[in-house]
Amino acid sequence: VLPASLGPEQFVLCLIEAEPPNVLLMSRPSKPFTEASMMMSLTKLADKELVHMIGWAKKIPGFVELSLYDQVRLLESCWLEVLMMGLMWRSIDYPGKLIFAPDLALDRDEGKCVEGILEIFDMLLATTSRFRELKLQHREYLCLKAMILLNSSMFPFFNAVEESDSSRKLHHLLNTVTDGLIWVISKSGIPFRQQSTRLANLLMLLSHVRHASYKGMEHLLSMKCKNVVPVYDLLLEMLNAHTLREQ
C-alpha cells in the first residue's frame, strides 16, 4: 500500500497492524545477575527483537518502496533507538523498573552489576518517566517509533535518479507519519491550543532517546571489546555498522 493513498487514520491503523510481537527471553538466568549473565540476557533479547524489527519496518506503508540502500541505512542508524522506545513503552506503567521483556524486568539498582550501564538505565528511566507524565498514548507511541526509523539518517545527496526518487518518497513518508501523529493528538480531546504544545513535548523527547542510544551503542561496543559478552549474528552486523561509520 502506498502512503499517498492513505489518510492519517488509515496510516495509523497500518502502524497498529505492523506492531511486532512481545519477545520473550525464555532462558532467564538465576539471580543475582553477574555482569556477563546480564549482558548475555540483554544481547540475546536484542538479537531476537531485531529480527522482528525488520518485519515491522517492512509493514510500514511505503517503507519497502524506498531503495534497498535507504532501507538498510535507516535500519542500521535507528535500531537501538527503536529497541529503547519499545522498552520505554513497556516500562511506562512501572516506575523505577525497565521491562526488557515480560520475563525480564529489571530494577534500576540491578544495573549496578554491569560497569557503565547504570547511567544508561537512569537515562531510560528519566525519559520513560517524562512519557508517563505526558500520559503517552499507544497510537502516539506507534507514530513516534515510526518517526525514529524514518528520521534516523540524513543521507548524502545522490545524483542517481533511483536514489533521489527514494529520498523524495522518504520525505513524503515522514510527512505522512507527522500527519498521523497530529491526527492522533487532535483526536485525544485536549483543547486545540494545547495540541501543538503536546506535539512539541513528544518530539523533544526523541532527542533524549537518540542520546541514550548513542550511549548504549558505546557501552555495547566496550562490552564486546572487553569480551564481557560475545555478540553474534544480526546484532553484530548492526553494531559493526556503527563502528565502521565512526572510524
Binding site: P20, K48, V51, H52, I54, G55, K58, V64, L68, Y69, Q71, V72, R73, L75, E76, D233, L234, E237, M238, N240, A241, L244
Partner: peptide, 23 residues
C-alpha cells in the same frame, strides 16, 4: 565495505519473507 557486504543478514531479511520464515 559496501552495505551489502556488511549487512548480509539484514539484506536477506529485507529481501526475503517474514521474520517467522527466518527464525
Amino acid at each position: 565495505s559496501s552495505l551489502t557486504e556488511r549487512h548480509k543478514i539484514l539484506h536477506r531479511l529485507l529481501q526475503e519473507g517474514s521474520p517467522s520464515d527466518i527464525s
